[in-house]
Write a protein that binds this DNA or RNA. Sequence first.
DNA 1: CTTTAATTCTACTATTTTTATAGAATTTAT
DNA 2: ATAAATTCTATAAAAATAGTAGAATTAAAG
Lengths: 137, 137
Amino acid sequence: MLSQKTKYALKALLYLAQQEANHISKTTDIAESANIPKKFLEQILLDLKRGHLVGSKQGKLGGYYLLKSKDEITLADIHRLFDGAIALLPCASLNFYERCSDCTDESECLLRHGLMTIRDETLKAMQGITIASLVNK
Amino acid sequence: MLSQKTKYALKALLYLAQQEANHISKTTDIAESANIPKKFLEQILLDLKRGHLVGSKQGKLGGYYLLKSKDEITLADIHRLFDGAIALLPCASLNFYERCSDCTDESECLLRHGLMTIRDETLKAMQGITIASLVNK
DNA sequence: CTTTAATTCTACTATTTTTATAGAATTTAT
DNA sequence: ATAAATTCTATAAAAATAGTAGAATTAAAG
């Protein structure tokens, strides 16, 4: 399941994607429109900025805007940015690989291979969902 | 990601699946072989029992055994039993449906449709992985 | 019928993660 | 200078996760 944070991030990106080109959106407007606690959204937008998905303008008349094109931002990107690995175990992850603490010999693990199959299929599906595809429902 | 509990459950089922027919396995043996804290495993095996995936025999010479056939137990079953919904949001779930607390009008939600697509694909992939397929890796 | 060794049941606890909130500092248009 | 926005750092409450403790129950075997 997605965390609230990831869901809010998606809703914020959807909001930004629906604004006209070059429009800059204030946190307050996004928060109200998407029903997200404002202070929480501030942090999320900063995370999205650090992830190079949105840009910001500071000061009065400041706000946020999409940095990447709607159809270049995939569900996989956002999941990885906020909830981390797409794989079901760290040992089956491409971007967040880690050995399992309780695993004595990874090459002998019966689980890993199957979980990598799931990862490949899930990843492919998640890369097929973009902000643009969601907006165009 | 799978919780430790789900991972341990899978490892326990894999252990049981590798025993010869009609063999009854003690919790202690499973715990040692699969490197799972014994007391934690006890609870997990009880959950698997309540989920009708394993059966048990009490008393001395007691233990656990697979109740369903290896190829009838899928990753989807185990995920649902321990980690719940396979969908990324409760509103997109088949078995664990719930409205999102912050959602004003579900029919207007741009996210839901895409997440149901992901759910269908992930579910299909997870139903393709069985205890038997993992053992026969 | 007592001992032994297993499951079963209930409760508890520590840690980590999640979901925020608070407030000061900084930036920039007017 | 003022106003209104982002940015930064710290804190806190609540929920979920991971695991422990110990007593009760069951059943085999001498």
